[in-house]
């Protein structure tokens, strides 16, 4: 497949495949094999399979990433309340230990599966796949995957989601996008959470956070939200609605979507599952 068709040859690696071919015998019994395969291709393959699970049922899968304590679970709680049954949702929770977050979600009347990763600092596609087999996906509109609180590792693993959302809470400071470029580059939407604290924590300048995000060549919209005051919740729900509609329209045409920026592996394998060869551009624009 992609390992042999040459579609994974980029500027950076082209010289490796020229002259001498794929396999070079250097001397008797010694072989030098050119591979050019993403290190996480096994994960990416599983992620593609997960995406098919979602797509077959018309589900939009959203991956929430942030530092611990940025408010991912609180956002989901208020989202569930605000949706008031408009969409049928389910949640996959990732934490190192405890069922606490899943219990919080279940109290809102929504199915939640807890993945306890033990010592693993991120969710991977296999863990999500196991969770999917413990869920009733029929009739669902949106599956939220709440990743392990961590601004580093989760960005490297495709889970099969269609969109990435990165939360940046005001107490964390406005330079997080500059400090964690891999994570913030991967965001299709940035939610500035705990925005009700902006008047108190006045050293946090939203414009500066946004400038750092743009410097990562990311044109993702930035929404200010506060689950305490309810600010921004309406816009957030509107974003979800737009994305769900767009997902259904894509599926009607036999297409799927990946987050705008994906680790190299996902793009190498983009052709395998009948989807587009290139990540879709945002359907929403920042002004």
């Amino acid at each position: 497949m992609c390992d042999t068709c040459g579609c994974n040859v980029t500027h950076g690696n082209a010289h490796l495949v020229q002259a001498g071919g794929k396999l070079e015998k250097t001397e008797q019994g010694r072989e030098s094999l050119t591979v050019l395969k993403n290190l996480l291709s096994e994960n990416d393959h599983q992620a593609g399979h997960n995406r098919e699970h979602f797509d077959r049922r018309g589900i939009l899968a959203v991956n929430l990433m942030s530092s611990p304590g940025a408010g991912k679970t609180a956002l989901l709680e208020s989202t569930i309340d605000a949706l008031n049954g408009e969409y049928k949702v389910a949640v996959i929770e990732g934490d190192l230990e405890t069922e606490n977050d899943a219990e919080r979600i279940r109290k809102r009347g929504v199915e939640a599966i807890q993945i306890s990763t033990g010592s693993a600092c991120h969710l991977d596609a296999h863990m999500v796949h196991d969770a999917l087999h413990h869920m009733d996906l029929n009739g669902l509109d949106i599956v939220f995957i709440e990743n392990v609180g961590n601004l580093v590792c989760p960005a490297s693993f495709d889970l099969g989601q269609h969109r990435n959302i990165t939360l940046l809470s005001v107490p964390e400071g406005d330079d997080k996008p500059a400090k964690y470029p891999v994570m913030f580059r991967a965001a299709d939407l940035v939610l500035l959470t705990k925005a009700d604290l902006l008047p108190v924590l006045d050293d946090f300048q939203p414009q500066r956070a946004e400038r750092y995000l743009r410097e990562l060549a990311n044109d993702a919209p930035v929404l200010h939200t506060s689950v305490r005051s309810g600010a921004g919740v309406e816009q957030w729900l509107a974003w979800l609605g737009t994305e769900l509609t767009a997902q259904r329209q894509r599926l009607a045409q036999g297409e799927t979507a990946r987050p705008a920026v994906q680790p190299e592996g996902a793009t190498l394998h983009a052709g395998e599952h009948g989807g587009h060869h290139h990540p879709h551009h945002h359907l929403h624009h920042h002004d």
């Binding site: 094999l33 591979v35 050019l36 395969k37 060549a217 044109d219 920026v261």
Partner: peptide
């Protein structure tokens, strides 16, 4: 301008393997 496209630098690729056979 910040409107750029990444053409290299996010690779995580197994490039080659040398092995003894026989």
């Amino acid at each position: 301008d910040w409107r750029t496209r990444l053409v290299g630098g996010d690779e995580m690729v197994l490039a080659s393997v040398s092995m003894m056979t026989g």
